[in-house]
């Protein structure tokens, strides 16, 4: 009995400690990102890896999400004759919610996992210790470019996802389901506010921070050889996805 309580307590304490370490890493990252020299070359390299290489997967996700949204909301809205509101529903869902969330989850899968694997294998092959020995701060050299790149790039990918999602919704709504094109677009322009788009972009920036920070943290704390790298990668994706979804609710509630 005592043992069970002990185990649970240790587990909880472990999670709390982990959260604390992630937060300390965040503070470290912020601190090191303010000191020169600024390594723009590393930043661009990471932006290319996280951003440019994720465009295709984000576009595909966005288009099909928009299309299926149009299909589903059409089914529901037809029940009370409001088919012309399909465009509004698609645009609002994409910009406010699905664009940022799906984009950042796809980027987590593509880039967050890569960060964990890369930094993790550097950790287990003692390259990070070597960096220390060469008086290069690994946080500055490895983590700062990745986190900054993600914060910048995920909102940009989100804009692309929003746009192609709305285009996909238009395609299904107007061309396949034959909703009146003029009313479809007019309603969309009427009911979607600028705030809806910026709302989503703020979320996307926060998600970018979350996914890169967790990817780097999991890589940075990897132990146990090749197996440990695999574990760190898996954990980073699961943890980042869960935290993104939780943060999504909080952010939505705050910015509602």
């Amino acid at each position: 009995m005592w043992k069970a309580i002990n185990t649970v307590g240790e587990g909880v304490a472990g999670y709390i400690k982990e959260m604390g370490r992630i937060f300390l890493l965040l503070l470290d990252t912020v601190r090191w990102s303010l000191y020169p020299p600024f390594r723009f070359d590393l930043l661009f390299q990471q932006m290319e890896r996280v951003g440019v290489k994720s465009v295709l997967v984000v576009v595909l996700t966005g288009v099909f999400t928009g299309m299926v949204l149009a299909l589903q909301t059409f089914y529901a809205l037809k029940k009370f004759g409001a088919e012309t509101m399909v465009g509004v529903t698609v645009a609002l869902s994409m910009t406010r919610e699905l664009g940022p969330v799906l984009t950042s989850i796809m980027v987590t899968g593509r880039a967050g996992s890569a960060m964990a694997a890369e930094i993790g294998s550097m950790r287990v092959t003692e390259q990070i210790d070597a960096l220390f020995a060469m008086a290069v701060n690994p946080v500055k050299y490895l983590i700062v470019p990745r986190v900054l790149a993600s914060i910048v790039v995920v909102p940009i990918l989100t804009i692309i996802a929003d746009f192609v999602g709305i285009v996909g919704g238009y395609f299904v709504g107007v061309i396949i389901l034959r909703i009146n094109a003029g009313v479809y677009v007019a309603n969309m322009e009427k009911y979607v506010k600028l705030g809806d788009i910026y709302n989503g972009l703020i979320k996307a920036a926060v998600f970018g921070l979350i996914l890169s920070l967790i990817g780097c943290y999991k890589g940075f704390t990897t132990t146990g050889g090749a197996e440990g790298v695999g574990r760190a990668t898996t954990q980073s994706v699961v943890l980042a996805a869960v935290i993104i979804l939780m943060a999504d609710y909080l952010l939505t509630a705050v910015m509602f």
């Binding site: 932006m47 290319e48 951003g51 440019v52 465009v55 910048v152 790039v153 940009i156 929003d162």
Partner: peptide
């Protein structure tokens, strides 16, 4: 250049 194009596309769409 690639990142530049990406950022440009994003800003134009926005």
């Amino acid at each position: 250049a690639k990142v530049g194009i990406l950022v440009l596309v994003g800003i134009i769409l926005l």
